[in-house]
Computed example of a mutant assay.
Amino acid sequence: MTSAAQAAAARRKALAPWLLMLPALVIVLVFFGIPTLLMARMSFNLHIDQRLYVPGFTFDHYVNLFSNPLFTNAIWTTVKLSVAASLAAVAIGYSFALLVWLKPAGWRLLFVGLALCPLLISEIAIIFGWWMFFPKNGLLSYALLSAGLIDDKISLMYTEFAAFVGLVYLTLPYSFFILLSIFDGLDKRLMEASADLGAPPLKTFVEVLLPLTWTGILVAFSQSFIWTMGTYATPSALGPDTLWTMGFLIQEQMLAKHNWPMAAALSAVLVIGVAAVMVFTRSLQSKRASFHA
Rank of each mutant, 00 (worst) to 15 (best):
A163W: 01
E123K: 14
G166Q: 10
V165C: 08
P135Y: 09
Y158I: 02
L170E: 05
S146K: 07
D152Q: 10
L172I: 03
I124S: 15
F128V: 13
G138A: 09
L116S: 11
W130L: 12
L172T: 02
I154C: 01
V168F: 11
A143T: 06
K153P: 00
V168N: 11
L149K: 01
F134W: 10
T159F: 07
W131C: 12
L116I: 10
N137T: 10
K136R: 10
I126D: 15
Y169N: 03
L140W: 01
E160R: 06
G129P: 14
A163P: 08
L170Q: 10
L144A: 01
G129H: 12
F134K: 07
E123T: 12
I127S: 14
F164G: 03
A162T: 04
A125W: 15
F161H: 02
T159E: 04
I126T: 15
W130Y: 11
L145V: 02
G148N: 04
L120Q: 07
A125I: 13
P118Q: 04
M132Y: 08
C117L: 15
F133A: 12
T159N: 03
L140F: 07
A163F: 06
E160I: 01
L116A: 05
L167I: 08
Y142G: 03
E160P: 00
F128G: 14
T159M: 02
G166V: 06
S146M: 07
D152I: 00
A115M: 15
E160M: 00
S146E: 11
C117Q: 12
C117K: 10
F161S: 02
S122C: 13
G138V: 06
S141D: 03
P118I: 02
V168D: 14
P135C: 12
